[in-house]
């Protein structure tokens, strides 16, 4: 049972990988032209030191993705390259490859997103659970309206406000970048604390905005769960209030909440891209912004592919963890 479940989920993951590659290949063609070739030719025409390399690239691109080749063959070449994680050179940063640039930026984004998502999910879920619990302190309730209001605005917009307040007005925190200019990168205390200082505002703008959403969702699940027969029976069994709360209510309400997390990852990432842009945080989002500014098609495609696959992977992990949370799942047909 378990194996079949995991196999099926892995199949979905492969489907997502294929989908990402396919989107990358076909979407640029919907306008009828080949924006990649256009950009390549433009860049090659600019000339400069890396001229010969660029011409090489154009030649190579033409033989493999030339208009004379059948679309299916081009598609095949593209899938082959992608399967080897070969996204070609960055057009704007030639001779650096797209893969290099992505590998450089990825840890920043993964670090920022993993921390903020885990924190906001945990805090929000806990708040929501407490909010639905009749015995929790009253002042919690007064905490919520501002968090719900925050939840309605986009991450980056709140980020702008934070920049203004804490970086511009009182200048407690740096407003831009992932580390101070000229800092020596490495695992030194100095650099790590520098990065931490630079991450506080971007992280806060994601956390403070998301917490309210998770709290709201969890409160809803808790209200539903607390009406369930097994909670009534648990109380009739004379279980301690904390047992009923944690092991019966929260434990069950967390299930739909986890599903919601898997579904929200894409949205969180979309929001984080913009946060990176306004904070100049040197992750995938800022790299993407730069690629868009320079119309660096290869880089854009590489990033889109990497991000979709990374999120697919995160979803896969959540899916595999899920039956461990909910023993019913591996037996039930997927529903």
């Amino acid at each position: 049972m378990q194996a079949a479940y995991i196999a099926r989920r892995f199949g979905v993951f492969l489907l997502i990988v294929w989908l990402a590659a396919t989107l990358n290949f076909f979407l640029p063609k919907i306008s009828g032209q080949d924006p990649v070739r256009t950009k390549l030719l433009q860049q090659a025409a600019l000339g400069g030191a890396v001229q010969s390399g660029m011409e090489e690239m154009v030649k190579e691109y033409n033989t493999r993705f030339g208009l004379d080749r059948p679309l299916l063959a081009q598609y095949g070449s593209y899938l082959y390259d992608t399967a080897h994680l070969d996204f070609n050179y960055s057009i704007a940063n030639y001779p650096r490859t797209v893969r290099e640039l992505i590998i450089e930026a990825l840890p920043w984004t993964v670090g920022l997103l993993a921390t903020t998502t885990l924190l906001s999910f945990t805090i929000g879920t806990l708040l929501g659970a407490l909010l639905a619990w009749p015995r929790s302190p009253r002042w919690l309730r007064t905490l919520m309206p501002p968090l719900w209001a925050l939840h309605a605005i986009p991450f980056f917009l709140f980020g702008l406000i934070l920049i203004y307040l804490f970086a511009f007005q009182v200048q407690w925190l740096p407003m831009f970048g992932g580390y101070s200019p000229g800092a020596v990168q490495g695992f030194t205390w100095r650099f790590v604390s520098d990065v931490a200082m630079h991450s506080i505002l971007p992280a806060l703008s994601i956390i403070l905005v998301s917490v309210g959403g998770w709290a709201l969702a969890m409160r809803g699940m808790m209200v539903t769960t607390m009406g369930e027969d097994y909670v009534v029976f648990a109380e009739a069994e004379g279980l301690r209030a904390t047992t009923v709360f944690l092991r019966y209510c929260v434990r069950n309400a967390i299930l739909p909440q986890t599903t919601a997390l898997a579904l929200a990852l894409g949205q969180i990432l979309s929001g984080a891209v913009l946060v990176e842009v306004i904070f100049g945080f040197p992750g995938i989002g800022a790299l993407l912004f730069q690629a868009i500014q320079e119309n660096d098609q290869f880089l854009i495609q590489g990033i889109v592919f990497t991000v979709i696959v990374a999120l697919g992977l995160a979803t896969l992990v959540l899916d595999i963890v899920y039956p461990w949370l909910d023993p019913r799942i591996s037996y039930r047909k997927l529903s």
Partner: peptide
């Protein structure tokens, strides 16, 4: 006193047990 003194056998017992335990 619940359970130890007075115990309830619930009405909707299709759903009266914690599904994840």
């Amino acid at each position: 006193l619940r359970l130890a003194g007075i115990a309830l056998v619930p009405q909707g017992s299709m759903n009266s047990l914690n599904p994840v335990m």
